[in-house]
Amino acid sequence: MSRLQELFARKNKQVLNVYCTAGYPGLNSTRTVMKALQRHGADLIELGMPYSDPLADGPVIQASGSRALQNGMTIAVLFEQLQGFRTEINIPVVLMGYMNPVLQYGFEKFCADAAAAGVDGLILPDLPEYEFETEYGPVIKQYGLDFIFLVTPETSGERVGKLDALSSGFLYAVSSSATTGKDKDFSSVAVYLQRLQEMQLKNPVLVGFGIKDRETFQSACQYANGGIIGTAYIQALENGTDVETATGNFLSSIQ
């Protein structure tokens, strides 16, 4: 089994996926942040690769990406930082980013280097389904990486089924069509999540966008296998004095 399969086999409720930006708050913070997340109870790390034009990211995550780019973060630097990280970190790690820098790096080289480093899966929101099926999916599979598609409340049932069939690891349920970090009314989201639950999908479902505290995390977990927190954690790092304390305080407030 892959690490993601092992995680959901062992724990299929209240799964906490935390997003962090590689190279933030400092260029060499990546491993420090990842270790702190594992130590304080994150089940899964979504490691963001900063990009100058991030379509789905709200202002806080955009700002963290801009800072990371100014710090000198690139995909090549990230893979250098990830060398040997599996000696310290055993929870699943997925890379989240956009196609442009990945294609510039070289798609197959990217997959090979991610797999060699010990990365478990990829989230590339702007990789179209057709191109995944015809060109990129086989390469991702060749290197043993999971690939996670996103669905939204506007995604038709038929398309949800198709994206679920193409995904492995988990399915990312975006709570609304807005960018990350917006406040959400989770009572309206509940109808959408119930619909996904009733579809008896192949993959576990994690909910992202707008989850920021214990209340919204529990609301997401009511109808899904867990939740994804990004903006609120980046803010905690931004406002904290050090990574360890900020991470400990933040995650203890969620769980």
Rank of each mutant, 00 (worst) to 15 (best):
M1H: 12
M1R: 12
M1F: 12
S2T: 09
L4T: 07
R10W: 07
R10E: 06
Q14T: 05
Q14M: 13
V15A: 13
L16F: 05
N17G: 14
V18Q: 01
Y19M: 06
T21V: 10
A22W: 01
P25R: 11
G26H: 09
G26C: 01
N28T: 11
S29F: 03
T32Q: 15
T32P: 04
L37Y: 00
H40L: 04
H40N: 14
G41F: 04
A42Y: 01
I45K: 03
I45A: 04
S52I: 03
D53L: 10
P54F: 14
L55G: 12
L55W: 14
A56Q: 11
G58S: 11
Q62I: 07
Q62Y: 11
Q62E: 09
G65N: 07
R67H: 04
A68H: 13
L69P: 11
Q70H: 09
Q70F: 05
Q70V: 04
E80H: 05
E80I: 14
Q81T: 07
Q81V: 11
Q81M: 14
L82Q: 05
Q83W: 11
G84D: 13
G84C: 07
R86W: 05
T87L: 03
E88R: 05
I91F: 09
I91K: 12
P92T: 05
G97L: 08
Y98P: 06
Y98C: 01
M99R: 08
V102T: 13
Q104V: 13
Y105D: 09
Y105H: 12
F107M: 05
E108A: 15
C111I: 03
A112Q: 14
A112M: 07
A115P: 15
A116E: 15
G118L: 08
D120M: 13
D120S: 12
D126K: 14
E129F: 10
Y130Q: 13
E131C: 00
F132C: 00
E135L: 05
E135F: 04
E135R: 14
K141E: 15
Y143M: 03
G144M: 04
G144R: 15
L145E: 10
F149P: 04
F149M: 05
T152Y: 03
P153W: 01
G157M: 10
E158D: 02
V160F: 07
V160H: 08
L163F: 02
L163I: 13
D164W: 12
D164H: 07
S167Y: 04
G169K: 08
F170K: 02
L171W: 10
Y172Q: 10
A173K: 06
S175C: 12
S176H: 15
A178Q: 15
T180P: 10
G181L: 12
D183I: 12
K184A: 09
S187Q: 08
S188L: 12
Y192W: 10
L193A: 10
Q194H: 08
Q194E: 14
R195S: 06
R195N: 09
R195P: 02
L196T: 09
Q197H: 09
E198K: 09
M199Q: 07
L201F: 09
L201E: 05
K202S: 10
V207R: 00
G208E: 02
R214N: 06
E215A: 11
F217E: 05
A220K: 03
Q222T: 07
Y223L: 01
Y233L: 02
I234T: 05
N239C: 15
G240C: 07
G240A: 07
T241W: 12
T241Y: 14
D242H: 07
V243P: 09
E244V: 03
N249P: 08
N249Q: 10
S253Y: 04
Q255K: 06
Q255W: 02
